[in-house]
């Protein structure tokens, strides 16, 4: 296990220089095309942006992927889209699996049996179901044991791989196949679980929320996670055109709107200190975000105005809490 150091040192935000995109284009993509993610699935963009940061920092990612869209679509035998070492074990154990790999790394290093001495970083990759729900215990245990790894959650706010069932990451009133918007119950009654703060509560050195639309911020945060000793948790917004009933070309736009409406604030937490990385000059109404997506369509019917109001309150409450946390 990693030595528990009081306060790991961070590469500061200013120290992370994102090279011009043009320079990054010369790097080799570590995720090959031919994967079968849906048309317009932003998870593909997220993976590419992860590898951009890793390549620029000269890290090889070793990935444990929970069952889910990305896992299924990138590893249909005999094809793999991965150009880095990759393992899928099951749905609920990406964190336990990657910490096993990390422990093996330490053990084999001690024995002088490592096949390579290049820089590696261990990554657990899971959707919101594999993170907020079924993988929660495994994730919590891995954080507490203080392994050196990055946990990446691509959060598309429902079980998309199995057919758009609600998860604890689904926002209030969103329509899913297991909590459809009906005449009596208008979608999911409960608000979204606030995962980042749960991660912070473990006392891990780095937690951040990212959105692929804001690739500069994404690059910096991923680079910081790479350079963090101990566990990092990255909560990444992932538009799902299929599950959200959105237009295929609007995945990045929706990501932008999520950030601009404060639905998906960009922040980071270093050793427990909160910092909001982007404060929209003019806060847009959450309506701008909602109206692009069929999963919220019922909220716009007359008589349902309160549903929008309630979701707006969820967003405002979280933003106000963030502002307070930042003052701590």
């Amino acid at each position: 296990m990693a030595q528990v150091s009081d306060k790991p040192k961070f590469v500061t935000r200013e120290e992370v220089k994102m090279p011009p995109l043009k320079e990054l284009t010369s790097m080799r993509d570590k995720i090959a095309p031919g994967h079968r993610l849906c048309t317009g699935c932003v998870a593909g963009t997220i993976l590419r942006q992860m590898f951009m940061a890793a390549e620029a920092a000269d890290y090889t990612l070793i990935i444990a992927n929970a069952t889910g869209c990305v896992e299924v679509c990138t590893s249909i035998y005999p094809y793999t889209s991965w150009k880095v070492p990759w393992i899928h074990n099951a749905f609920e154990n990406a964190a336990a699996t990657i910490t096993g790999v990390e422990a093996a790394y330490k053990a084999l290093k001690k024995k002088g049996m490592l096949p390579s001495d290049k820089k590696v970083k261990f990554v657990a990759l899971a959707g919101d179901g594999g993170t907020y729900d079924i993988g929660f215990q495994s994730l919590s245990g891995a954080f507490e044991r203080n392994h050196d790894f990055i946990y990446v959650c691509y959060d598309n706010e429902a079980y998309m791989n199995t057919g758009i069932q609600r998860s604890s990451a689904t926002p209030r009133h969103a329509s899913t196949t297991t909590q459809p918007a009906g005449k009596v119950i208008p979608g999911k009654p409960q608000p979204k679980k606030w995962m980042p703060e749960i991660a912070v509560a473990h006392g891990i050195p780095y937690v951040a929320q990212l959105a692929p639309s804001n690739f500069n911020d994404f690059f910096k945060k991923f680079t910081k996670a790479l350079n963090t000793e101990g566990p990092s948790y990255l909560n990444i917004f992932c538009t799902c055109p299929r599950g959200w009933r959105a237009k295929e070309e609007e995945g990045i736009l929706i990501s932008k709107l999520a950030v601009e409406t404060n639905y998906w604030p960009l922040f980071e937490v270093e050793n427990g200190s909160w910092k909001i990385n982007y404060k929209p000059k003019e806060r847009k109404s959450v309506v701008e975000f909602l109206k692009k997506q069929g999963r919220f369509k019922h909220m716009f019917k007359s008589g349902n105005e309160h549903l929008i109001e309630e979701l707006q309150q969820d967003v405002d409450k979280r933003w106000e809490r963030l502002l307070k946390l930042e003052q701590l």
Partner: peptide, 20 residues
């Protein structure tokens, strides 16, 4: 204008870039 916005967002690695 080779801003590479298409390249950075393409989910399928399908924007072919050569020499910037």
């Amino acid at each position: 204008i080779d801003c590479m916005i298409c390249w950075v967002f393409c989910p399928d690695s399908s924007i072919i870039v050569e020499d910037n």
